[in-house]
C-alpha cells in the first residue's frame, strides 16, 4: 500500500504573493479603464447622431469634476497599459535576426514605445488643430 499523501496548497490570494504578480494584475486591470473610456466615447458618437443639443449635453456631462477625475485616472491607466503592452509584445514575435545578430527584446519594445509616442503626438496635434 502506498504511504503517499500529497498535500496540495491552496491558490487563494496568489497574486498578492509576489510583486511581479501584482504588477501583472495592475497591467490587466488597467484595460478596464480603457474599456470604460471607449464606452464613454461611443456614447458621445451616439449623442452626436441625435443632434446638436444631445451632443452639447454629453459635452456638459464631461465637464463634471467626477468625469474629469475619471479621465485623468484613465489616461494614466491607459499609458501604463500601452507601456506594458509594448514591453511584452516581443514575446509574441518569432526570433528576428539582422545581419546575423538577434534583435534584443528591448529594441523591439523601444520601437513600439516610439511609435506609440509619435502616434499620440500626431493625434494630439490633429485635435488641437495645429
Amino acid at each position: 500500500m502506498s504511504a503517499r499523501k500529497p498535500y496540495v496548497r491552496p491558490m487563494g490570494g496568489w497574486w498578492r504573493r509576489n510583486p511581479f504578480f501584482m504588477r501583472y494584475m495592475v497591467r490587466e486591470a488597467s484595460a478596464v479603464f480603457l474599456a470604460v473610456y471607449a464606452v464613454i466615447l461611443l456614447a458621445g458618437v451616439y449623442r452626436l447622431s441625435q443632434g446638436a443639443a444631445a451632443y452639447e449635453a454629453w459635452l456638459a456631462a464631461l465637464r463634471n469634476p467626477l468625469a474629469i477625475v475619471f479621465h485623468g485616472i484613465a489616461l494614466l491607466a491607459v499609458a501604463y497599459h500601452a507601456y506594458t503592452w509594448w514591453k511584452v509584445m516581443p514575446k509574441t514575435l518569432p526570433m528576428l535576426h539582422v545581419g546575423g545578430r538577434r534583435i534584443p527584446e528591448i529594441t523591439l519594445s523601444a520601437v513600439g514605445w516610439a511609435a506609440w509616442l509619435a502616434a499620440s503626438l500626431i493625434v494630439y496635434a490633429l485635435v488641437r488643430g495645429l
Binding site: F20, Y24, T92
Partner: peptide, 26 residues
Amino acid sequence: CMLVGYCSEVCPKGVDPAHAINQNKV
C-alpha cells in the same frame, strides 16, 4: 497562457518559455 511572464524571469538557463509559448499563439 495569460503572459504573466514570470516563468522567463525565474528560468536559470535563459530558456524564455514565455517567448516560446507566445510566438506559438501566432
